[in-house]
Design a protein around this nucleic acid. Structure first.
Lengths: 144, 144
DNA sequence: TGATAGAGTTGGAATTCAGGACTTACAGGA
DNA sequence: TCCTGTAAGTCCTGAATTCCAACTCTATCA
């Protein structure tokens, strides 16, 4: 595994495989069951099994038995998994603006009453991020 | 292409394949040349070619000839590509917190002077997003 | 008794990927 | 002139993944 030392790469090693983020989207929507996740994502069942195990091993999901006889399981988010909601919403908004044609397929309401639009800001000053307002202080090294 | 109608899925169709986001990370860092992008991401050259062509076709990157003899090209971001910086930074921060061990490999400075930490907020009220403050108004349908 | 549901497994075909060698086009140095 | 180097790919082969459909197992429902 060569390439620049980077948390984007590390994050993608956990959630970057095909179907992983879509499975997480479903869990965030409250869908906890294997069959439903499979149907709603479109992933084939064997791959979905592999992905869910991976996400569990990475600490993003938990697999919980909710019935003993017959044994049945459901998937719930850990803290790390819940923290991905900002990533998913930011990506969704990008998709709404630059990829999806027509109306956004999904709309959320924020507790303030508004239909949610997300904004990514500097935590310190609160200003909206623009590429031109950023300069790298340090970037990960690339192994020789 | 089954699965829920969703801008996350649509966005991932454009940037969700392996190496795509890492190639975009490099371009955002100012790396424009094929060889350097290949080295810094670790992608194999033929796959990288395929990805760059895909990103170009999707309107996220532009391929520009910067020298006629011999013909040489460089890659630059379009508006859509530049707009991905929030996605990348949000993902990076998640990786810093939940995946990368030790210090964050990359640090940015915001024009306000602070070392950048990003925050994802409601564009309307400015409050930081938390999963509990969101409710779906509408979600994409799943084809039968 | 048979049908249904949930949560996977299994097997084989199709696709994608890794890694390295090769190509083309030119510039500079010996 | 010949040799070497650089940039941007292309090509090839074998290995790894993914897709798809069918199958399993357990237990409840009608």
């Amino acid at each position: 595994m060569r390439g620049r030392d980077c948390s984007i790469a590390n994050a993608l090693a956990v959630v970057g495989e095909r179907w992983s983020l879509l499975a997480l989207r479903e869990v965030m929507l409250g869908v906890r069951r294997f069959d439903q996740i499979a149907r709603n994502t479109g992933a084939s069942r064997d791959i979905l099994t592999t992905r869910l195990r991976g996400l569990e091993a990475a600490g993003v999901l938990e697999r919980r038995q909710y019935e003993a006889h017959p044994p049945r399981y459901e998937y719930v988010l850990t803290d790390a998994g819940r923290a991905l909601n900002t990533v998913l919403l930011t990506l969704m908004q990008w998709g709404d603006r630059y990829v999806t044609e027509g109306e956004p397929p999904a709309v959320w309401r924020h507790s303030c009453g508004a239909e949610l639009q997300v904004k990514t800001v500097c935590a310190e000053c609160g200003e909206e991020l623009r590429p031109s307002s950023l300069t790298p202080i340090r970037v990960g090294a690339v192994p020789a």
